[in-house]
Structures are given as structure tokens and as C-alpha cells.
């Protein structure tokens, strides 16, 4: 078990190192380093000033050397300064990460709960199967940002019940009003895969011999479904949660952008649009690390609930 965690952590570290190097190289090949941007912003800077600044910040050294220096400072917890927000990157990252984790956590719980209900409906009532299937395909085909826009139109423009975006200034209960629509957007976007997988896992479990036996001995459909079929259908659903982590994080980026919610996704997007590439790179690495950590914890949870996997390599 500990060996498994160690090897997976090593794999995550290696992936992040490769990703950071590739991204650093790509960004380094782009024209327009921070000095060129500074010159464009201030005509009084001369070519000699630029050369001096480049030497001062080490931008005249080979890219590999620059990458190693950058990696060493990031590993020591020094993330540098954001040109776009004129603040240290670390000050921007942690509040944004908290906001995104809150959004994702609530949305995942909701989409798992409603997805399971829809899946159970499809498994227990074969007549409802086609309806659940159609709903799932439509929900999976609708772009996340469109779901967000439709919810804004319905609840913010037409009904006027909820704010169209942004974040609460008052905090407390008021903050919940700003959370409702983004959470609903992400939950609807994630609902489809939960419903489809729950339906197929529960249908399979319901046709197993022990379920048929339990039914024959007089157990009610409700008891059999939630007491016997669901625990046996849990492993594929936890696997799905692990596989979906990346898509979910992408959905958070779109949702935060649509609702102008300050989170990791919006931070990365703003950094790319404002060509603050250092901030974009650090945000990308943090998002990647969180995603892979989520996948790993889902895999470990899978081993905890399925004893058959514990002895597997």
C-alpha cells in the first residue's frame, strides 16, 4: 500500500516536472519577454537599458539554466510576482484555490447524489431507462458555458432571484446566493456521466444471483436497491469520480469565467489573457497537482471499499 502511494506520488512528480519544462520551453520561445513588454509600455527605455535589465534579471542566460533556477525557487516556495495583479503570486493562489475547491466540492456532491437517483430510477424502472438515457446524452452534449448562460437568463434576468455573477461583499449567507448558479451549472454538467454509469452499474448489480435470491425471499425493491445493489455498484462509480477529475476542473474554469468568480480557473484564464505567463504557469501546475491528487485519493478510496483490490499489485 505504502509502496503504491510512493510510486504514484513519484509518477505525479515526474508528470509535473515534464509539464513545467514543456510549458517553460514553449513560453520561453515566445517573442516578448517581460522586458520587451516594459519597453513597449515606456518609450523612455533605451536598448541599453533593456540589455542591462535582461542581464539583471538573468534573461540573457540559456533557457535550461533559467528553467533550473525557476524550478529551484518554485520548489522552495517562492512563486514570484504577478505582473498583471502587481502582487506576489502566492497571495493570489491560495484564496483562489479555496474558492474553487468549495465550488467543486459542493457541485460533485450534488451531481453524484442526483446522478445516483436518476441511475437508480433507470435501473429499477426499465420504462424510465430511455428517458434517463436521453437526459444524460443531452446534458453531456450541452457546453458548460451555455448551461451557465441559460441559468443566468432564467434566474438572474427573467426571475431576478439570484445575482448573475461576481462574489459577495458581505460574506456569510449572502455568499451562498452567489454560489448557487455556478454550483448548479457544474452539477448539471457532471450529472450526465454519473447517471449513465450509475444506471449501468446498478442494472448489472440488480440482475446478479444474490439480488434475485434476496428478492425471492421477500426483500423489497427499495431495500435491495440501496442495501445490496448500491454497495456493489460503488467501485465503478468511484473509478468514474477519479477519471472525471480533469473534466471537472475544466468545467470549473469555464464556470468561473462565465460567472466572474475569482477562483483557480479564472486566475489561469486572466493570466493567459493578460500574458502574465509566470502566473499562468504556476496556476497550471497547481491545478494539475490538485487534479492528480484527487485522482489518487479516489483510487485509494476504491481500494478501501473493495477488498478484492487490496492484494492486487
Amino acid at each position: 500500500m505504502i509502496g503504491l502511494i510512493a510510486s504514484r506520488l513519484a509518477q505525479i512528480g515526474l508528470t509535473l516536472a515534464a509539464l513545467s519544462f514543456a510549458a517553460f520551453l514553449l513560453i520561453g520561445l515566445m517573442p516578448g519577454d517581460p522586458i520587451a513588454l516594459a519597453i513597449a509600455g515606456d518609450p523612455r527605455l533605451s536598448a541599453e537599458d533593456a540589455a542591462r535589465l535582461r542581464a539583471l534579471h538573468g534573461l540573457d542566460t540559456p533557457i535550461l539554466q533559467r528553467y533550473l533556477a525557476w524550478a529551484a525557487s518554485v520548489l522552495s516556495g517562492e512563486f514570484g510576482h504577478s505582473r498583471l495583479f502587481a502582487r506576489p503570486v502566492a497571495e493570489l493562489l491560495w484564496p483562489a484555490l479555496g474558492s474553487t475547491l468549495l465550488l467543486l466540492g459542493v457541485a460533485v456532491l450534488l451531481s453524484a447524489a442526483f446522478g445516483l437517483l436518476l441511475g437508480a430510477l433507470a435501473a429499477a424502472r426499465p420504462g424510465a431507462r430511455a428517458l434517463v438515457d436521453a437526459t444524460a446524452i443531452l446534458a453531456a452534449s450541452a457546453p458548460t458555458f451555455w448551461i451557465g448562460i441559460l441559468l443566468i437568463i432564467l434566474f438572474a434576468v427573467l426571475l431576478g432571484w439570484l445575482p448573475a455573477g461576481g462574489q459577495s461583499e458581505a460574506g456569510g449567507l449572502d455568499a451562498v446566493r452567489f454560489l448557487v448558479l455556478p454550483v448548479a451549472t457544474l452539477a448539471i454538467a457532471g450529472l450526465a456521466s454519473w447517471a449513465r454509469h450509475a444506471a449501468s452499474a446498478l442494472t448489472e448489480a440488480l440482475s446478479s444471483p444474490w439480488i434475485v435470491t434476496a428478492r425471492a425471499r421477500g426483500a423489497s425493491l427499495r431495500r435491495v436497491l440501496w442495501g445490496h445493489a448500491l454497495p456493489n455498484a460503488a467501485p465503478p462509480l468511484v473509478t468514474l469520480a477519479a477519471l472525471d477529475a480533469g473534466a471537472l476542473v475544466g468545467g470549473a474554469l469555464v464556470t468561473e469565467t462565465v460567472f466572474a468568480r475569482p477562483g483557480m480557473g479564472k486566475l489561469l484564464y486572466d493570466a493567459v489573457m493578460g500574458s502574465d505567463l509566470n502566473l499562468a504557469l504556476v496556476a497550471l501546475l497547481l491545478i494539475g497537482a490538485v487534479t492528480m491528487a484527487a485522482t489518487l485519493s479516489a483510487d485509494l478510496a476504491l481500494r478501501a471499499i473493495d477488498p478484492r483490490l487490496r492484494d492486487a499489485p
Binding site: 480533469g246 475544466g250 499562468a280 497550471l284 491545478i287 485522482t295
Partner: peptide, 11 residues
Amino acid sequence: LALPALPLLVI
């Protein structure tokens, strides 16, 4: 597959 696709695509 393990990395989040959309943030990478955005960059």
C-alpha cells in the same frame, strides 16, 4: 489523460 485538458488547452 491525468492532466486537466482545458487549462492546458487555454494556455
